[in-house]
Write a protein that binds this DNA or RNA. Sequence first.
DNA 1: AGGGGTACCTGCGGGC
DNA 2: TGCCCGCAGGTACCCC
Length: 277
Amino acid sequence: MPELPEVETFARQIRPLVLNKPITTVTVTPKGERMIAPLSPAELTAALPGNSFSALKRHGKFLIFELADNKQIVAHLRMSGRLVITSKKPSRDKHNRLWIAFEDGSILNFLDTRRFGTFQLIGKPGDHKGLNQLGPDALDPAWTPRTFHKALQKFNKAIYKVLLDQSAIAGIGNIYANEALFRSKIHPLSPAKALSEKQAGNLLHNIIDILSTALEFKGTTLIDSSYRDSEGSAGEFRTLLQVYGKAGNNCVNCAEQIRRIRIGGRSVFYCQNCQKA
DNA sequence: AGGGGTACCTGCGGGC
DNA sequence: TGCCCGCAGGTACCCC
């Protein structure tokens, strides 16, 4: 569920509460065991106590907890993961899968309803396959219209699929891909290669604007969705969505109704009239 | 290489 | 109320 703005929101909220604090215990529930694979709970538990996190970084939708001894924990929230801090006692949420207790009594809890999330200890930077395959972060200041246009040329597929391809640009998920294409007036099935540098530049601008604004709003919580930030608050970017989840609604720019199609098994929303490029 | 399908899980809403 | 279906913000893996 979480995309870049939601993951960054978690990072900002928990960072000051978990850095440079000695770890005392690690607890992995039976249903949390898959999430730490290939390590066993015993192996993870043996590696952490006495250690502490020296930094918490984010790349795309991954969170990287750096340990003082050069090891790292690479975490991914996938569809339903959440990170919550409690004091003295672990969260009693039924979906609390694993937690790390610190010397000062605070506890980092990884909640995950669907258990697709991962929380993997690696020996040194570079040892995580998923992380190694990532392209530049979507909010990396190094992006320019030219480099983005050039990156798109490498992919012989629909622009929608490239935006979701984490090896091309990291951090965009379904909601923000839909919104960025709508604002850029680009049809989701347009070949990525066909975009001009001007179109690519405009798309990049809209991606950055949407992700930055969504971050200010602490992400997007859809109606009936379970996403809540680390403090339990809903993300308010929902009010700014223009197409995602709005099949049948009138387009905000014209008289067309927003359509829903399937691309690669996922729901994609767009305006047939506005998104012709 | 790119497309599609399935799998991994749990929960929710809609239709009957 | 209960059941069955489709759906979900992600990604990996298989097959063609």
